[in-house]
Design a protein around this nucleic acid. Structure first.
Length: 434
RNA sequence: GUGGGAGUAGCUCAACUCGGCAGAGCACCGGUCUGUGGCACCGGACGUUGCGGGUUCAAUUCCCGUCUCCCACCCCA
C-alpha cells in the first residue's frame, strides 16, 4: 500500500471543519485590523532562504528540501530551488520585487504549507501549516513604530480569544538591533570563553551543545534547557543591560500599549529566536497542552531583512502561527465543534425506479434556495434511505416517490421527533428552513 | 541527527509469557421487513499479523534488518 510519506499526513473530515473554523476566524480578525492576504510560491530560489533566513540557522543548514531544477536547454546551468521552510522571506521578496513600499505601509497575511526535513513528533511535521502576518514598509510610513508591534500582538490576543484558546501565555523580549546586539554577543562570548583565575572557562563546565554554541552562536546558550547549566546561565550578562537607547525606548513603547490595553505578558530575557533576521521585539505565545512543542506561534521584528535580500530599507514585524499546533489546542473548543458539525437540513430520498431524475431537479431547487441538502438513490429501500439520512445527521427526510411527484407535494419527516407533514413543492424550501 | 516505546480486521484491542488452524466488541453489507428509520434476531465480508530475511516440520509468537507512528533530545511554529 502506498502511504503518505514520513512527516506528512491527510487532514480528514470532521477535523477539516476545525481547520476551516480557524481559517475563517483568522480572516475575520485580520480583516478587522486591515490586513490583506498575500500568496507567494511554495518554492523559491534557494538563495532567498540562505540570505533571508540565514546560512547558519538549522533550517537552512540541514532542514530544507532543496533540488537542482534543470535548465531550459541542455547546456543551461540548473537553478537551485527550495520548498519554502517559512513564509516571511517570500513575502519580503514579493515586497521588494513589486516595490510595494511605494504604496505605503503593507499589512499582509498568509495561510499555507511550509516544509522542513526534521524528525517528526507531536506537533512537528515535515509538511506543516503556518498562518502568518507581516507589517512592512518604509520607515516614513511608520513601519518601525512600536505601535505596529503592539498592534500585531493585540491582534494575536484577539484571535486566540476569538478561537476559544484558553490559557495562552505571551512571552516578550527585545533582542536588540544591529548596533547593540553585537556588543551583547561579544560580552556573552567573553563571559563564556574567557578563563577565570583558575584557567577554567564557564563554557567548559556546560553541556556539549552549549560548548559548541559558545563559539558559534552565544545567544542560543540562553535558551539551553539542561538543568545543570541553569545556575551558570544565571550569571551571564543580561541582554536588557546592553540594549541601546533606541531599542530600550522602542521596547518601552510596545509594553506601554500592552499595559494600557490590559494584555498580559511575561518579559522573558532568555527568549531568543532561531532565525537570524530578528531584531528588537521577539515574542512567543505558548500553550500547556502541546508537550515539548509548546510554542503555538512565534515572531518578532526584522528591520534588516529587506536589505539582506537586496531590497531597500523596510523595517517590519511579523509572526507565524503553527496551525497544526493551534488546531490541537482547540480539541475542546465549543466554537470549533459547532463550526465543524454543520449537517444538511434535509435528505431527499427518491423512491422507486425512474425517480432519480425528478428528485435531482427538486434537490437542485432547494440548494438554489440556499439550503444544504443531501440526496439518496432510487435503488435504496426506504429503510436504507432513513439510515442514509441518519448517517449524515440530516434534520428532515423528504420522501419522493411517484405519488409525490404526481401530486407535486412531498412527505417531510423530522427524524428526531417522527413528526411528518405533507408540503406542496412551492412551500418546501420554506418548511425546511424553519 | 541521537535515545526510548509501539505496530494484529475500517476502529478499540485479545492471542505472544512457554511457537501448533488469528479472535472479540464496535463499525460495515445483506436478510427477516416490497412506501416510513432507530430496536431485535439471523447471515455475510472481514487480515500479505507494517515490510524483508533467518531459525523451525510449523512463526503474530524467537532472532536480525528495515519502514512508519508515538515520546524525549535537538530545533522551531
Amino acid at each position: 500500500m502506498i502511504k503518505a510519506v514520513r512527516g506528512t499526513r491527510d487532514l480528514l473530515p470532521p477535523e477539516t471543519g476545525v481547520w476551516n473554523f480557524v481559517e475563517a476566524t483568522v480572516r475575520e480578525v485580520f480583516r478587522a485590523y486591515n490586513f490583506h492576504e498575500i500568496r507567494t510560491p511554495i518554492f523559491e530560489s534557494t538563495e532567498l532562504f540562505a540570505r533571508g533566513v540565514g546560512e547558519e540557522t538549522d533550517i537552512v543548514s540541514k532542514e530544507m528540501y532543496t533540488w537542482e531544477d534543470r535548465g531550459r536547454a541542455e547546456s543551461d546551468k540548473g537553478q537551485s530551488l527550495t520548498l519554502r521552510p517559512e513564509n516571511t522571506a517570500g513575502v519580503v521578496r514579493a515586497y521588494v520585487e513589486h516595490k510595494l513600499g511605494d504604496r505605503g505601509l503593507q499589512k499582509l497575511y498568509y495561510i499555507g504549507p511550509q516544509f522542513r526535513r526534521e524528525r517528526p513528533q507531536k506537533g512537528r511535521y515535515r509538511q506543516f501549516y503556518q498562518i502568518g502576518a507581516e507589517v512592512i514598509g518604509p520607515t516614513a510610513a511608520g513601519s518601525e513604530s512600536p505601535a505596529r508591534d503592539a498592534e500585531v500582538l493585540t491582534m494575536l490576543a484577539d484571535l486566540l480569544d476569538r478561537l476559544g484558546v484558553r490559557e495562552w501565555r505571551l512571552e516578550l523580549n527585545s533582542v536588540g538591533c544591529k548596533d547593540c546586539r553585537p556588543r551583547f554577543n561579544e560580552a556573552l562570548r567573553r563571559a563564556l570563553t574567557e578563563p577565570d583565575e583558575n584557567g577554567v572557562t564557564l563554557a567548559s563546565q556546560m553541556c556539549g551543545d552549549c560548548q559548541r554554541r559558545a563559539v558559534t552562536n552565544p545567544l542560543r546558550v540562553l535558551d539551553c534547557k539542561v538543568p545543570e547549566d541553569q545556575p551558570m546561565i544565571a550569571t551571564l550578562p543580561r541582554l536588557s543591560d546592553y540594549l541601546d537607547d533606541g531599542c530600550r525606548t522602542h521596547f518601552a513603547g510596545v509594553t506601554a500599549v500592552l499595559d494600557a490595553l490590559g494584555i498580559a505578558y511575561t518579559r522573558n530575557e532568555r527568549l531568543v529566536r532561531g532565525l537570524d533576521y530578528y531584531t528588537r521585539t521577539a515574542f512567543e505565545f505558548t500553550h500547556g497542552a502541546l508537550g515539548a512543542q509548546n510554542a503555538i506561534l512565534g515572531g518578532g521584528r526584522y528591520d534588516g531583512l529587506s536589505e539582506a535580500i537586496g531590497g531597500p530599507p523596510a523595517p517590519g514585524i511579523g509572526f507565524a502561527i503553527g496551525e497544526d499546533r493551534l488546531v490541537m489546542t482547540l480539541a475542546e473548543s465549543a466554537a470549533a465543534a459547532g463550526y465543524a458539525a454543520v449537517a444538511p437540513v434535509a435528505y431527499v430520498a427518491p423512491l422507486g425506479a425512474g425517480m432519480n431524475a425528478p428528485a435531482a431537479k427538486l434537490v437542485r431547487e432547494l440548494r438554489a434556495a440556499g439550503l444544504v441538502v443531501d440526496l439518496g438513490d432510487e435503488t435504496f429501500k426506504i429503510k436504507k434511505s432513513f439510515e442514509g439520512a441518519e448517517r449524515v445527521s440530516a434534520k428532515y427526510i423528504v420522501i419522493c416517490g411517484e405519488r409525490e411527484f404526481a401530486a407535486d407535494a412531498f412527505n417531510v419527516k423530522e427524524l428526531a421527533t417522527g413528526e411528518q407533514v405533507t408540503v406542496p413543492r412551492t412551500e418546501l424550501a420554506g418548511k425546511l428552513r424553519r
